[in-house]
Amino acid sequence: MDDAVRLESLTKTYGSGTGAVSALREVDLSFPRGSFTAVMGPSGSGKSTLLQCAAGLDRPTSGRVFIDGTDIGGLNETRLTEFRRESTGFVFQAFNLLPSLTAAQNVGLPLRLAGRKPGRKTVLRALAQVGLEDQAGKRPSQLSGGQQQRVAVARALVTRPAVLFADEPTGALDITTGRELLEVLRKLVGSPVMGGQAADDPELVEPTTIVMVTHDPNVASYADRVVFLADGALVGELTTPTAEAVAARMTDLAVS
Rank of each mutant, 00 (worst) to 15 (best):
V226P: 00
V226S: 00
G74D: 07
F92A: 03
G56S: 03
S9R: 15
T49G: 01
F90D: 01
L98M: 15
T209L: 06
G41H: 03
I67V: 13
T18G: 13
R116W: 11
A20E: 13
V21L: 15
L229F: 07
S22D: 15
T159K: 14
D68T: 10
V5Q: 02
P118H: 07
Q197L: 15
L57A: 10
H215P: 09
V123K: 00
G56F: 04
G119R: 15
L253Y: 09
D28V: 09
K47T: 07
L188M: 06
V163F: 05
T81H: 12
T177V: 14
Y14V: 12
R59G: 06
L253A: 07
R25M: 11
D224H: 09
Q148T: 04
G115A: 08
V211E: 00
R64N: 10
V130G: 00
D231A: 14
L80K: 03
S87I: 10
T251R: 12
V189K: 00
K138Q: 10
T88G: 08
L173F: 03
L109P: 02
I67T: 09
Q105R: 12
L109N: 05
T177S: 11
T122D: 10
S45G: 07
R33T: 11
L24Q: 01
M1F: 15
S62D: 11
F90L: 11
A162I: 03
T78A: 13
D224R: 01
T11K: 05
A198N: 09
V39E: 03
T239W: 10
R84M: 07
V184L: 05
S22N: 12
Y14E: 10
E86H: 14
S43P: 02
G232Q: 07
P217Q: 02
A20Q: 11
G178Y: 04
A172E: 12
A103F: 04
L124F: 11
K117L: 14
Q93K: 05
G137S: 14
A38E: 01
G146V: 03
E77V: 13
S45D: 05
G73I: 06
L127E: 00
L229I: 09
A20G: 10
T251H: 15
T242K: 03
T176L: 14
K138M: 14
M40R: 02
T61E: 04
P140E: 02
T81R: 13
